[in-house]
Design a protein around this nucleic acid. Sequence first.
DNA 1: GAAATATGGTCAACCTGATTGACCATGTCA
DNA 2: TGACATGGTCAATCAGGTTGACCATATTTC
Lengths: 158, 158
Amino acid sequence: MPSHSHPGPGQIPLQLAVVHRAMTDDFHARLAELGREPLRPAHGYTFRYLAAHPAATTVDLAAHLGITKQAASKAVAELQDWGYVERLPHPTDKRAQLLTLTERGHDYLRLADKLWADVERHLGEVIGPDQLATLSRALRTYIDHTYGDQAVPFRPVW
Amino acid sequence: MPSHSHPGPGQIPLQLAVVHRAMTDDFHARLAELGREPLRPAHGYTFRYLAAHPAATTVDLAAHLGITKQAASKAVAELQDWGYVERLPHPTDKRAQLLTLTERGHDYLRLADKLWADVERHLGEVIGPDQLATLSRALRTYIDHTYGDQAVPFRPVW
DNA sequence: GAAATATGGTCAACCTGATTGACCATGTCA
DNA sequence: TGACATGGTCAATCAGGTTGACCATATTTC
């Protein structure tokens, strides 16, 4: 009798992974429906970070994403090629570059926010507003407890 | 005024990702504490699948994980080298191989189950038993609604 | 100030986990 | 029995990351 069949304790982390995956799939399906190219999740995290930190450099971004500066640099170059990000000269440090979202980048982020809200709304329809509220509160509580004042690591999952 | 600051609708999917990540980190920390080598998440999914489907072949596994049979084959070879999985001749199909967990594989799975339960218990201590129960119910409801009778795809996240 | 050191960024080589494509051996079906 | 389908392997390639060396500019220390 395997102790690892469906029910029982320890299921929640697995379910979290499944739901996370399902919602990500949902998001990408909505994106595809609109005919938009699917940027990878790491790009979304980059957008969010740049929008929130307009004076960020590549090194900052790398630290935030939990990857090396080389990897971050490559990602930024890609986003720049696609017109989502600009690299401007840093006003005081001639070595550094200021990373900023272009209008196109902001547009994409706004769209993504809308789509995530749609996904969330769908979740709400399935589980009901009460459970949705509880879910949100539980997640926030856990995140606050885990990271406290520290910056929440937005690193991609594994 | 960026529409993508912290609060607001659409946050839940992001929070799910963060919590999932935090719990995975927690799991790996506990594993490391015991001095156990950290198999990758895909290995965990493989173990679970093999435990639940004792007559599985490499192709079955690949389909379940959502990867190519070549990739699955490589992963199985690795797990076999480490002594977690055996490849036995298939009783009726000379092309195929039966994948089975070794005792060592079952051990690891049991340990993983225990650690995930610990992680879950910790979550329960943080958010309280009521919210934990609601969370679990909400996740299960959403999963059932999304996948219904179909097999839940255990594919790694992105 | 000048020398030593730290830091932002790039280039290049490499690793890993996946992919596609070709192929063989066995199974299944007409 | 011949045609096609399927389980598995080998080989080449790709993507996204890593480490290491390096340059130019900042910052610290004497």
